[in-house]
Design a protein around this nucleic acid. Structure first.
Lengths: 217, 217
DNA sequence: ACCAGTAGGCTACTACTAGTAGGGTTACTT
DNA sequence: AAGTAACCCTACTAGTAGTAGCCTACTGGT
């Protein structure tokens, strides 16, 4: 007598892992398309074909759900760029290929990139401590690459360079978003033109300092 | 018989312009301290000593209020940096002083900068068309400076450089936020080291191209 | 002194959304 | 077959963006 009409819907019982991935997919889509604020949990639940309490069961809160989406996307991005850099030989090529992979990611995964770009800032103070590692992963990876190229440079400066490069990437990706004529290759070329001559010069300068101090000491 | 206790409060009637500035001050403070989402309009109204409908009368919506805050801060920032650049002689000094002014702004107006950094992304698609001019003002200003330094360079590349520099600035400002030992002067020096040698080389390259084509044509 | 007219202000709502309580159903184990 | 754990639901509460409709204190003309 209670409620037997559940059978009418084509919904299926799924394992937790399956459901989580399904929910993340839908959430990523909706958050990217309409924005975090304008999206309601009821909305996502309806699209998944599930009820709201399940979202809370799995992700704790609305922000938790967003966070899970962001982490997944960030991992994908890091995999893309680090794979590209790993396959390159020599520091210049490595940097170039890493940057290119980044801009290509923005083009090929427009939705994921839009989410990452526009909603990353939503995550507030209390939470970003919890994911401190994630926020800087791209910067740390870049710093590692630079460390190999510039072993004699002040570590603080390396950090600074890495942050600057990441910032430049983000902004340039945004800039070229609505300009189809600016290909990933071109953006990469521009950015390399802006930083590589300086980095080469830095290598020379550091070697000179190193040699000099070695001669003197 | 109605309500005469209004006299007990020290509230004063103010002109619209005064009230707007007062509200913007309070809103900037609260938004910066607790974040846009975690702040309610009732909250701001209470702190101002005013009722909520007045906020809507003046700013239309919660997002409208945030937008007004952001515009004010952005204007201040642009004034700071352009004044610094205007007082410098020569392209290198000009760029250097502009960057330094930017990082100093972040240090001296922590609250304003925090607001600009964390809440800019809240403004969504529909609205940022309306303020398209504002979003890119800093980049356009930088581009103007570069155009003087590199008159023979591809305009698209100049745009790209300007965007890259702005992005690098934003990210570096965030990076040094909790590191008191990294002074604005040091950050500026790092960033100059990353871009100036390349820009110099670009000048030389552009001149060579220009001269060559002139000789040939 | 009086009386609009208007600008600044308010209380008291509505509609919607994040998050929860508490209970039902399926499927696998023993 | 009973137990139990995992999946899932309906039906709430609390709080917030935004609005309707009314009040009040200055202004300037008469």
């Amino acid at each position: 007598m209670k409620i037997a009409q559940r059978a009418t819907s084509g919904r299926k019982r799924m394992s937790r892992a399956e459901r989580e991935q399904q929910i993340l997919g839908v959430a990523e889509e909706v958050f990217a398309a309409r924005g975090y604020q304008a999206t309601s949990m009821d909305d996502i639940a309806r699209r998944v074909g599930l009820s709201k309490p399940m979202l809370y069961e799995y992700f704790g809160s609305k922000e938790g759900l967003l966070l899970a989406c962001l982490e997944r996307v960030r991992r994908e991005l890091l995999e893309c760029t680090s794979a590209a850099a790993a396959n390159a030989v020599g520091p210049e090529q490595q940097l170039h290929d890493g940057l290119l992979a980044f801009f290509r990611f923005g083009e090929e995964h427009k939705q994921s990139w839009a989410l990452l770009r526009t909603e990353s800032a939503v995550v507030r103070a209390g939470l970003d401590t919890e994911l401190e590692g994630f926020r800087t992963q791209q910067a740390e990876f870049t710093e590692q690459m630079l460390r190999v190229t510039l072993p004699n440079t002040d570590p603080a400066r390396l950090e600074a360079f890495a942050e600057a490069i990441i910032g430049a990437c983000e902004r340039m990706a945004l800039w070229r978003e609505n300009r189809p004529e600016i290909t990933p290759e071109r953006v990469t070329e521009h950015l390399m033109a802006l930083i590589w001559p300086s980095l080469s010069a830095e290598v020379a300068a550091a070697e000179r300092v190193h040699t000099t101090s070695h001669d003197q000491g």
